[in-house]
Design a protein around this nucleic acid. Sequence first.
DNA 1: CGGCATCCGCTAGGATACTG
DNA 2: CAGTATCCTAGCGGATGCCG
Lengths: 135, 135
Amino acid sequence: MFDTHTDVRIPDLAPCGSADHEDCGLRMILDRLGEQWTVMTLAELSAGPRRYRELERALQGISQRMMTLTLRRLERDGHVLRHVEPSIPPSVTYELSPIGRSFAAQVAALVEWSRQTKAHIEASRASFDARSGQK
Amino acid sequence: MFDTHTDVRIPDLAPCGSADHEDCGLRMILDRLGEQWTVMTLAELSAGPRRYRELERALQGISQRMMTLTLRRLERDGHVLRHVEPSIPPSVTYELSPIGRSFAAQVAALVEWSRQTKAHIEASRASFDARSGQK
DNA sequence: CGGCATCCGCTAGGATACTG
DNA sequence: CAGTATCCTAGCGGATGCCG
């Protein structure tokens, strides 16, 4: 793991554009990922459709405001589909779209990688903090 | 693309932990990715070692403060190595560590995916905005 | 050259209250 | 139940100035 030489060929990161990565669409993705509830919402929805309340309960500690905002943004980007059942009281169900599932798969890859790397990073941080602490 | 049925099996996103994704280390990664200069810095460094000034010029528009902060955090996490040449004036060179290169590869995968998905997302946004605009 | 230190505006996001 | 609306604050990140 992490061989200096044999490691995976690094696909080209640079030619994406100079200004920001707006042109390649990366910014749009990172904006979502930067929001702290997006990944957990995707995780929960990747297990199947959920109603608003179910999601809220699953994502312990989320505020109503952020629940709605997160879902709206995911919906706007086409990752999540919203079905309204106009009953009384109303029932609203959310589920991943094909694109959303594809997105979730990407995130899952990231999760897998971070699992493998977690220990290294924590060790690196500890060592870094120790070095700067003593000085 | 984006078939509902044949699509990649979705690696399990959920069992990462209930609280946040702290336990699987995802949060650490997302924290970096959330910062707007991290990806561009990785991109530039994936082309080879760079001096502070070179990076600053490559990342058009970055402030000194963020250049330093971004590099420090990447260094702390073990993605970037910092070499100081104690000459006068001093020369400081940054380069990716093996872990950093591995990280860059992950990001590159994300870039590739976002390239393919960009059009879909933009279309989805346009349609969403149109719908909410008319109402 | 390669940085810190400081001030400061903006926005992400929590808490709270109200509605169809 | 499934939201909207409002208020409020902590922190990210830009601008500026100073230093070895």
